[in-house]
Simulated assay, not measured.
Amino acid sequence: MPNDKKMEKREALMIVNPVSGTRSKRGLEELVVSRLAMSGVTVRTLYTEGSGDASRFAEQAVAHDYDMVISAGGDGTVNEIAGVLSHTSTKLGILPLGSGNGFARSLGIPQDVEEALKVIAEGYSLRCDRGVVNGLPFYCTFGVGFDAAVSEKFSKMKRRGRITYVKSVFREFLNYQPEPYALSIGGSVLTEKAFLIAVCNAPQYGNNAYIAPHAKLSDGMLDITVVHSGSPLSTVLVGVDLLTGYIDRNTLIDTFRVSAATITRLGCGPVHIDGEPMTLGTNLEISCDPSSLSVYAPEKEAEFKPIVSPLRAMIDDFRYDVKAKFR
């Protein structure tokens, strides 16, 4: 992956989303300040109270020439901050404190806060692409169909976390009806009744659900996964392959690697951008904006291996959860 030089400036703004995920953020500010001080980084902290706050705070950081902005939240918080930092010299650091943390996981950033802080302190950064749909940026995934419907339901739940998300998936699966779409790529058009269409800058949604296992964050391309309409059993098996990393081998799946594409549907409706639900129109114009964001990440990129990589990630998650309970 292309990379930047190690950080020279040592000023950081940490933006904390206090309601993201399920992990407590008690003592977070003190921990971050003390750990990064050892690397010569001074940290100022701001807390969001609603949508748009993270973007506004990030704009302040860019205006005041901060070296980095640290996102302490989930993919929605990352999206707001990254949207401001893209095409600037201010770098993004991530403390994965959301429900899925798809972008952080795809970068190889540990889910444990102290280990994630080590990544920031080491100062290695790389340039990542982003996707754009109808002018709106996404850094992990964009989707229509079933996953958009689940995101909409999940956003209305009072509780967050993996268990709540799984409940949303099962409830929506029982009633969901696939819809027709036209996917246009380089002059060719695929018309299909699809369960979902996912446009991926990163390989996974989050929670180690690999919707595009071989997607790369810095290849200048987007990976599109089309899950066609099938029987309830065959669709459930797609879900199994999603967790093992073998989804691209499933017979219900078509995959494409593109720099641009258009999705057309019958009318406006729900979509999700990095897991956040919203409503967009009939025509969805998608493109890749290459090397647009500088983000701190582990210097060594781990090779993805089906079954092995998801299993290793699950073990790490269990270890971090146990550590958090006894901290």
Rank of each mutant, 00 (worst) to 15 (best):
K6C: 11
E8P: 00
L13A: 07
E30H: 09
V32E: 07
V32H: 11
S34Y: 06
L36M: 04
V43Q: 04
V43T: 09
Y47G: 01
E49Q: 06
D53L: 02
S55F: 05
F57E: 01
F57H: 03
F57Q: 04
H64G: 07
H64K: 14
Y66C: 12
D67T: 15
S71Q: 01
A72H: 05
G73T: 08
D75M: 10
G76S: 12
A82Q: 04
A82R: 03
V84Y: 11
S86T: 06
T88I: 06
T90W: 10
L95Q: 13
G98M: 07
R105K: 14
I120V: 14
A121L: 14
G123F: 11
C128N: 13
C128P: 00
V132S: 13
P137M: 07
T141H: 04
S151W: 01
G161D: 00
I163F: 14
V166E: 01
V169S: 03
L174P: 00
N175L: 01
Y176D: 00
Y181Q: 01
G186P: 02
G186N: 11
L190G: 00
T191K: 07
T191C: 03
T191N: 01
L196R: 00
C200T: 02
A202V: 03
P203Y: 10
Y210W: 15
I211D: 00
A212C: 03
D219M: 12
D219Q: 11
I224F: 07
I224W: 02
V226L: 03
S229V: 05
S234G: 07
V236Y: 15
V240C: 15
T244M: 08
I247R: 03
D248K: 13
I253W: 07
D254T: 06
V258E: 04
T262A: 10
G267I: 01
G269W: 13
E276A: 10
P277I: 14
T282V: 11
N283L: 08
L284W: 10
E285F: 15
C288H: 03
S292K: 07
L293K: 06
V295M: 11
A302I: 12
S309M: 06
S309E: 08
L311E: 02
V322W: 12
K325Y: 07
